[in-house]
Amino acid sequence: MLSKIREILSAAAIHYGWVMEPDAKNILQLAGIDVPVSCWAKTPEEALAFAAKQGYPLAMKVVSPQILHKSDVGGVIVGINTNESLLAGFEKMTRLQGFAGVLIEEMLQGIELIVGAKIDFQFGPVVMLGIGGVSVEIYQDTVIRMAPVARNDVESMVAHLKARTLLEGFRGAKPINLAALTNLMIIFSQLVTDLSDDIESIDLNPVLCNEERCVAADARIILPSSRT
């Protein structure tokens, strides 16, 4: 598994310095992390074929080696419900810089968390859990632990989030599947420990958590500058 992951990372390193979303998700899936059902469509026909198989609603994200923060440039469309809007969205994406297709994914509902990792100079691989989405840097509600983490570390991370009540089922909402989150954190922290020489940081943002699943809906892997 690790050698396959390193192959993907090496290929990405040669080209960009970070790993594009379809490859990053491929790596996560290889490691055993839940990711959305998806298709990297390079033509409108491929997009339509996936939609026919998967059904609506769908999310569409641009794939481009030149776009690191997709939503900042209009590279993310959610809630696509018809073939027409799928094709219109595709057309719009083709005009973005470095267009290399789109990633079309099943739409998931849940609380948006961020799960991250970085290779820290002083402490080596560390993982982060926090309230995610586009406002992460505003709320800054995150907890960090040294990787790899065990079950009790994940429990303590959740307990130290200011917004932990959201995860426990706030105002009638169902609590998230904590076992799935714990499992994700444990696998992820082991993955970044194994890859501590190969990567610089990883963002899984958002990780969508509901009462059933915790799914890495977006992933960004930054490679060390020495590799690029």
């Binding site: 970070w18 690191l68 961020i114 991250g116 990792a117 970085k118 820290d120 100079f121 002083q122 560390v126 982060m128 926090g130 992460v136 840097e137 800054q140 995150t142 960090i144 610089e200 940081s201 990883i202 963002d203 943002n205 960004r220 930054i222």
Partner: peptide, 11 residues
């Protein structure tokens, strides 16, 4: 820093 984690997880 180019990732949220790197920016949120300062030294």
């Amino acid at each position: 820093v180019s990732s949220h984690t790197a920016s949120l997880a300062g030294d």
